[in-house]
Amino acid sequence: MADQTQTVDSPKPLDTQFIIDQARGYLAFGEQIAAMGQQLQGSAATGADWGTMLRENFAQFKTAILQSADDPNVNPELARLWNQTLDLWQQTATSLGFVAPADGGGDAWQAYRGVQNQYFDMLRNAAKGALDLMEKQLSERAATGQMIGSLRELYNLWVDCNEKTYGQMLRGSAYAELSGRLFNSLLACSPKRENTP
C-alpha cells in the first residue's frame, strides 16, 4: 500500500507563544525607536546638527537595550530580543531535565553557573558591539543622505549588526573553548553522573 505522507512521530507543533514573544520583542524595539525618534525631532527643532543629535539620542537607546541585558526584569520583551542564544540554550537544558535545584545545587551546579555567566558576558559584549556598529552605520547613512524607510528596515539593520558581531565572536577560538566548557559543565550536572560513585 502506498505511503504518501510521512508516518513520523509528530514533532512539537510550532509554539504560538514563541511567535508572540518574538513579536513582542519587535514591538518593544519599535517603542524604543519611537522614543528616540521623538527626541530627535525635538533636538532638530533646536537646530542641532544631525551627527550630534544621533550620538546623544542613540546613547539613550543603547542604554535602554543594555539595561535590559543587565537585568531582564527591567524590560523582558527587549531583553528577549537580543538574548536569543542564551534563551535557546536555557530552553534546551530545561527540556532535557537540567533544572537548577532550589537550594543552589552542589559543586557541579555552581561550576556550571560560573561558566554560564562567562558565556552570558561574552554574548553581551557581542550585543554591545552590535549597537556600536549600528550607530556607526546609521551615522554613515546620515552622512550620505541615505534614508531608513521603515521601522522594519531599522530592525533588519539591528539584526544584521548583531549577526555580524555575533558571527565574529562565534568564529573565535575563545567562543569555541567557552561553549565547549558550557556544554561539558552542564553535562557534569546530570543526575546520573552525580550518582556515580
Binding site: I19, Q41, A142, L154
Partner: peptide, 27 residues
C-alpha cells in the same frame, strides 16, 4: 529618524500588532 517620523513608527507598530492578532487566529 533618517527619514522615519515618530508618527510613521507608531503607524507601523499598530499595523504590525493588528496583523499579529489576526494572524494568530489563522495560525
Amino acid at each position: 529618524m533618517i527619514g522615519l517620523t515618530p508618527e510613521q513608527i507608531s503607524e507601523e507598530l499598530k499595523g504590525y500588532s493588528a496583523r499579529l492578532t489576526e494572524g494568530m487566529q489563522t495560525l
